[in-house]
Simulated assay, not measured.
Amino acid sequence: MALPRLENAVARRLFMDRHALLEQPSGASKGGDLLQLISRLGFVQLDSINTVARAHDMILYSRRPSYRAKHLTDLYHGGGALFEHWTHDAAMIPLAFYPQWHLRFQRDEALLRKRWRNWRRDGFEQQFDTVLTHIRDHGPVSSSDLGKGEKKSSGGWWDWHPSKTALEYLWRTGALTVVGRSGFQKRYDLTERVIDEALHAPAVPLDPAPTVDWLCSQALDRLGFATSGELAAFWDTASATEARQWCQQAKARDEIEEIEVEAADGSLRKCFARPGTVDQAAELAPAPGRM
């Protein structure tokens, strides 16, 4: 039986729709309205490079022209509605998604210890207790508050002293939470003081299956159609194997179906989508003139 086919022009419209780019760019851009937009996108990637503007500000402005950089800062610093962590890169993520990051914390714990030991950051593990005690006694810190007199590593982007590396490791593995930035420098505090206890990791060993299910399902809803590899890459926590197995199981449950998507050059590739996606996409209107 032939697979449902998503023609290229329709696929483009669907992709834009899922990324909030098919509608007229307008609407409120503060507080709960901004949080709703970020939740719809899944996250907004942070970028330190500032040419025209920082990438995260351009992403939000393109969808809400009344947006200003202060609106994201207010939501992040004062609202307790977002947390900062990693997807494929550093990102602002709705706090409601925080429990889904426990798997990321767990996996980063082993991965980063091994990786960073090989990147000439010797001594960072010995700083864990010192860093945590300092923050517990003195409150939030940035990397410039610690590590005075410590030797830095090899330079460039990774010119970190051991205490800076310890801060980043403890943040990436969930013990610390970024509570704001001064300029673009992160400030860290104890997670137990920042994140509501109800969102903390469970005491029992973590079963990855529910998180993988959430990650793949939510990624597909935000992409519209995707390969298993693209589902894995969206949040960059589930492995390619886990995403592939999820697709097989979800297809067996009739939660997704296989479709053909036409590329710009006319070639076809197989993807997964929710049942009925092809018919629903055909009903989407073209993008407004401004977009």
Rank of each mutant, 00 (worst) to 15 (best):
M1R: 14
L3E: 12
R5T: 15
L6T: 03
L6Y: 00
E7Q: 11
N8H: 15
R13I: 04
M16I: 12
Q24E: 14
S29D: 12
S29K: 05
G31F: 04
D33N: 13
D33G: 03
L34W: 01
L35A: 08
I38A: 01
L41I: 08
G42A: 13
F43T: 01
L46Y: 09
D47M: 05
R54D: 05
H56L: 07
M58G: 11
I59V: 15
I59D: 09
Y61T: 08
P65C: 04
S66Q: 15
Y67I: 13
Y67W: 13
A69L: 13
T73K: 13
D74I: 01
D74P: 07
D74R: 13
Y76V: 10
E84W: 08
W86Q: 03
H88W: 10
H88K: 10
D89M: 07
A91D: 02
A91H: 03
A91P: 06
A91L: 08
M92A: 11
I93W: 00
I93C: 02
Y98D: 00
W101L: 01
H102D: 07
D108S: 12
A110H: 10
R113I: 09
F124E: 01
E125D: 12
Q127K: 14
F128V: 03
T130F: 06
T133Y: 10
I135P: 00
I135Q: 01
R136Y: 09
P140H: 03
V141C: 04
V141G: 02
S154D: 14
G156L: 10
W158R: 01
W158P: 00
W160G: 00
H161V: 12
H161S: 05
A166G: 02
A166V: 01
Y169S: 00
W171R: 02
R172G: 03
V178T: 03
V179Q: 00
R181M: 09
G183H: 05
G183N: 06
D189Q: 05
D189L: 06
H200N: 10
A201D: 04
P202N: 05
V204L: 12
P208C: 14
A209T: 15
V212K: 00
W214D: 03
W214S: 03
L215F: 03
C216H: 04
L220D: 00
G224C: 11
F225H: 05
A226H: 02
T227A: 11
T227P: 07
D236L: 05
S239V: 07
E242W: 04
R244K: 15
I256Q: 00
E258Q: 11
E258N: 09
E260Q: 14
A263E: 13
A264S: 12
D265M: 07
R269A: 12
K270H: 14
R274V: 05
P275Q: 14
V278S: 01
D279E: 15
Q280M: 10
P286N: 14
A287D: 02
A287P: 01
